[in-house]
Design a protein around this nucleic acid. Structure first.
Lengths: 163, 163
DNA sequence: CGTACGTAGTTGAACGTTCAACCGACTTCG
DNA sequence: CGAAGTCGGTTGAACGTTCAACTACGTACG
């Protein structure tokens, strides 16, 4: 019970003790994990986690080419962020930019040979870290449950943020 | 397989298709969720998600006082980050800083009346968003499984990063 | 005592993301 | 055709985090 926070009328449904514990654990886990994985990248790899994921997306296209906006949507990043990230990667020779054929607004991001070599040589360390810090630390059932739960959350957020 | 780490001799154990799917889903879910929750804060609340969590920590101390380093550890943030965050919040009157009694190196962060009022008035919107975007979107079992999985990940990362 | 080392917190610069403003190119429709 | 609106991408400034260097205090050990 509590307060007379007028105006809102509705008494908010607080989280119970157990929910609150799960929520805190979620926050801590996510924070520590991205921090640990990011640190792994900056210590042992030449590309950051974000850059790595971008390289992976490019490598999955048969031509090593993905349009900037598709990259942005796929990575759930803003267009501006992708512009800056690709700009930095281009300066290092990992990718290059070419005009999209048929749409003069568009820009295609293309994986260079250097970029592909970098990805191939650094993938093992990346996967090893992901395994060590998450996949292998969980039982297969736990990992699957984690994936399923986050799928629901992702969908919910996508609907809430139709952008 | 799984040979000694000598050289690069080891064939990396890649993720299988299903694991990869879960991993991607995890990344997307986490990214979209923090983005959606952060946006909720910046749209409807006067404090960011990080600042809110800091206020909560302070409010849980009977005296509204928590030492900077305890804050940093509890939030899994660097000391520097807490210094900057508290500096900005102090400038807005939400918290204040006082010397830790008995240890002249220490600094205690104290919740002000303004800070407490802010927390009380904005908590409902925060909780509503957390519920809408995550807790209520999942079944109780899913949410519990998510919490349990992240507890393991958090512990693993804490051990990997004893810092 | 004093030297050396660890802890607590701050500082300022560098870096990456966000935001708003912008421009050129496509589309719709009168 | 031409105007209005949308889409794709870039730009530069503002903001928050990280990093390395630094001050000051505490602790251990000779």
């Amino acid at each position: 019970m509590s307060d007379p926070v007028t105006g809102t009328g509705a008494e908010p449904r607080w989280l119970d003790a157990e929910q609150q514990r799960h929520w805190r654990t979620y926050l801590e886990g996510v924070s520590r994990f991205i921090e640990a994985l990011g640190r792994e990248h900056e210590r042992h790899l030449s590309v950051s986690l974000n850059e790595y994921e971008l390289l992976v997306r490019l490598s999955e296209s048969p031509t090593g080419t993905v349009r900037m906006s598709v990259l942005a949507d796929g990575l759930a990043h803003s267009r501006s962020r992708v512009t800056h990230t690709v700009g930095r990667m281009e300066a290092r020779g990992l990718v290059k930019r070419v005009a999209t054929p048929g749409d003069r607004r568009g820009v295609d991001c293309v994986l260079t040979d250097t970029g592909r070599r970098t990805l191939v040589s650094e993938a093992p360390a990346h996967v090893a870290a992901v395994r060590r810090l998450m996949v292998d630390a969980l039982t297969p059932e736990q990992f699957a449950a984690l994936g399923d739960a986050m799928a629901v959350v992702a969908r919910t957020c996508r609907e809430a943020e139709p952008d």
